[in-house]
Design a protein around this nucleic acid. Structure first.
Lengths: 200, 200
DNA sequence: CTCGGTGCTGAACATGCGTTTAGTGTGCTG
DNA sequence: CAGCACACTAAACGCATGTTCAGCACCGAG
């Protein structure tokens, strides 16, 4: 039933009731109010996310290519749609989802650094936050700017977005973007010796 | 008058009318409809953006530190607010703004590459798009997840966001994230010789 | 069969929205 | 002063929304 709600958050109760094949009065009677319905869906979605994560842990935790990631997305298509809507609108699901993703990301990068796969950062937490917000934000902005005509095509859309973004992303991740260290060193010098005492 | 509209797009005509100190009927009478008001504001904002860009070209086009960028943001605070709302909601302003930003970005990176400041990419356009969407998207997602209590604090919020993101960003841009070339080379090998013929 | 509970519905209600309309003052023109 | 256009408003309308209410059909228990 939660998947109906992914047709939009501002969307009328009558529509989700019609999708469920019941009267609008029933869904209100059952959930108490629209807000409570939203809350219930949020809880359900968060539970589904936890389940999906566990399921993925059960699978090959190591050799996960991004083909498997695509498969995961397609398997949980409505969930992804709901999540994107949430990220667009804000709210508790979005918050806790991103928070969880941040800690996960931090954990993963820590492991990657320890394994010698990733370079260490001067501020691991800030890097994890930046990388996560960038990746999610790019996807979010992309779907916001030109949303798929048919919401059912969302998985195809996500797939296309990632195949288009993968090259520049992995290029940036391995080779960087700037040719010299000047900007970084300038900044490091700046933070170690702030020129003006206006801010701490 | 356009700045009133930045209090939200779904927001009632009555509110913006009250902010303008006039009756709701007048604004409708003057603009024809709410949609047309929105369109008018969009045009106005796009014009303001062009003006701001020209203004910035007039200033030190080269030695632009990001202090000046902050100053620019603060000088055009309502504009930035409107833009963020637009990016959140989608629509024509968001589209044309991002499109313009993409071509600008492509142009800048091309110049930077030619000047030897930036590394060349295997797909300059894709990289410009990725970098732009990531940067904008990260900011957008950040303000969506925990919006400033007072919309007037938005410039402070933007400032904080960038100061927090600058280190990981510049670090990533100069040093990269991955320690070895394996993922990139694997991908390059993959695209040069796709294993399955399902997609072109 | 009757009774009561339960899942459910159609019609109504209140509210807030964008918009329309009739009308009012105000100032400019002759 | 008369006429008129114009900026503006108060009140209403039509519509969609979330929500409520009285009642309907079913169904197991007595």
């Amino acid at each position: 039933m939660a998947r109906f709600a992914a047709e939009g958050f501002g969307a009328p109760v009558r529509a989700v009731a019609a999708d469920a094949g019941v009267s609008p009065a029933l869904v209100i009677h059952h959930f108490g109010s629209k807000e409570r319905l939203r809350h219930e869906c949020d809880q359900h979605v968060l539970a589904l996310i936890r389940a999906a994560k566990n399921e993925n842990i059960g699978r090959a935790a190591e050799g996960k290519s991004f083909f498997e990631a695509f498969a995961t997305v397609e398997r949980h298509a409505p969930l992804v749609g709901y999540l994107l809507r949430s990220l667009q609108a804000g709210g508790t699901v979005a918050r806790s989802f991103v928070d969880q993703m941040l800690t996960d990301s931090e954990q993963y990068t820590a492991a990657a650094v320890e394994a010698g796969v990733a370079r260490p950062s001067r501020d691991e937490r800030a890097r994890a936050r930046y990388l996560t917000l960038s990746a999610l934000g790019a996807l979010l902005l992309s779907v916001t700017l030109d949303p798929p005509a048919d919401p059912a095509d969302l998985t195809a859309y996500v797939r296309r977005f990632f195949t288009e973004s993968y090259l520049p992303m992995i290029e940036l991740y391995t080779e960087g973007f700037l040719a010299d260290r000047r900007m970084l060193d300038d900044y490091l010098l700046y933070v170690s010796d702030p020129p003006r005492g206006e801010e701490s």
